Amino acid sequence: MKIVVIGGTGLIGSKVVRRLGEQGHEAVAASPRTGVDTLTGEGLTEALAGASVVVDVSNAPSFEENAVMSFFRTSTGNLLAAEAKAGVDHHVALSVVGTHRWPENGYFRAKVAQEELIEKSSIPFSIVHATQFFEFAQTIADEAADDGTVRIAPVRFQPIAGDDVAETVADVALGSPLNGRVEVGGPEQYRMDEFFRQAMAVWGDPREVVTDPHARYFGSVPGERTLVPGDDALTGRTHYRDWLARSGK
C-alpha cells in the first residue's frame, strides 16, 4: 500500500516512514526537501498519485500566531483538495492533546482550525492527539527561561517519546479511518515544574526552576489538565529516564 507522509523528513515523519517501510508498505516522505510543498501545492499531484493513505505530521516553520494559523489553513486546504482529486481513502493527522481546551493559545487555535478542515472534508480521517515529545523538553525549558531561571507552572505534564508517537501514527494509518480522534501520552505523569527540576539536574543545566502558577507555556498559561490526555488515552512504552539513557543525553 502506498502511504504518503507529509513532513516525512522531520522528527516524527522520518520515524513513521521507517516503520511503515519495515512493514512492507511503500512509504513516501513528502516535504519541501523532497520537492513537495503543501503551501504552494508544488509536487502534490505527483506525490499523491496512487496513494491510499496520507499522513500529515508537518509543522509550521513559525509559531507566531498569524503565521501558524496561515500555515495550517493553507497547507491543510491544499492537501485535502489534492487528496480528493487523487482518490485517497484515509487522511491521518498528528495534532496536540488539549487543542480544544485551550483557545487562549494561538498555536492550539491553529490546530483546531486544521482539524475543522479535516472534519469538513469528504475524506475519511483519523486525528492523533499526542502530548509533548521528550525531544522538545530542552526547547521548552529554554522558552521558559528568564534571567537565569526557568519559570514553570505546577500543572500536569505527560511527555512521550517521539518513537512512541510514530508507532501510534503508523498503526492508525494502517487501520480503518476513525472519523474521530485518539489520544496518546507518555507512561508517566508529572507535575511539570517537578519534571523540569529533575530533568535539568540530569542534563547538568545549572538554571533554577521556579514554580510559577502564572508561567506561560508558548504564549499562554495552561490549566491543571490542559496538557494531559484523558483516562482512556493510549500510553507510550518509553520512560523518560530510559529514553535519556538510550539517546546518550
Rank of each mutant, 00 (worst) to 15 (best):
Arg156Met: 14
Gly7Tyr: 04
Val169Tyr: 01
Val53His: 04
Gly162Ala: 11
Ala170Thr: 02
Ala86Asp: 06
Ser247Gly: 00
Phe108Thr: 11
Gly21Thr: 13
Ser75Lys: 05
Arg73Val: 11
Ser70Ile: 04
Arg156Ser: 13
Glu183Gly: 00
Val150Arg: 05
Ala245Lys: 05
Ile118Cys: 09
Arg109Pro: 04
Glu116Thr: 13
Ala110Val: 10
Gly8Lys: 09
Gly50Leu: 13
Ala47Thr: 10
Ala199Gln: 05
Val155Gln: 08
Glu65Asp: 14
Thr168His: 07
Glu224Val: 11
Val16Lys: 06
Trp243His: 10
His25Gln: 13
Glu183Tyr: 07
Val228Asp: 03
Ala82Gln: 09
Arg237Gly: 13
Glu194Asn: 08
Arg246Asn: 14
Ala93Met: 06
Gly10Ile: 06
Trp102Gly: 06
Glu64Cys: 06
Glu115Ala: 12
Thr235Phe: 03
Ala51Arg: 08
Val172Cys: 08
Glu208Gln: 14
Phe157Gln: 06
His214Glu: 15
Thr99Ala: 15
Val55Thr: 02
Leu234Gly: 06
His129Lys: 13
His25Arg: 14
Pro124Val: 08
Pro229Trp: 12
His239Trp: 03
Ala49Gln: 14
Gly35Asp: 07
Gln114Met: 15
Glu135Thr: 11
Asp232Met: 05
Ala84Arg: 12
Ser70Trp: 10
Glu64Phe: 04
Phe134Ile: 12
Val54Ala: 07
Phe71Gln: 02
Gly13Val: 09
Val55Trp: 02
Arg18Ser: 14
Asp242Ile: 04
Gly35Phe: 03
Gln198Met: 10
Arg151Trp: 08
Ser126Val: 04
Gln189Asn: 11
Met192Ser: 01
Leu178Ser: 10
Pro222Lys: 01
Arg19Pro: 01
Ala130Ile: 00
Pro222Cys: 04
Gly8Gln: 11
Asp164Gln: 10
Ile3Glu: 04
Pro222Thr: 00
Arg181Cys: 05
Val4Thr: 05
Glu104Asp: 15
Pro222Gly: 02
Arg151Thr: 09
Thr139Asn: 13
Arg151Pro: 03
Ile123Trp: 08
Glu42Tyr: 09
Ser62Gly: 07
Val92Asn: 01
Ile123Val: 15
Ser176Thr: 06
Val28His: 09
Ile118Met: 11
Asp232Ala: 12
Asp242Trp: 01
Ile118Glu: 06
Thr131Pro: 00
Gly236Asn: 02
Asn59Ile: 08
Val5Pro: 00
Ser176Pro: 00
Gln158Gly: 10
Arg241Ile: 12
Lys249Thr: 11
Val209Ile: 13
Glu167Tyr: 09
Glu183Lys: 01
Arg225Asp: 11
Val96Asn: 14
Ser122Tyr: 00
Glu104Gln: 14
Thr211Asn: 05
Val210Ser: 02
Glu208Trp: 02
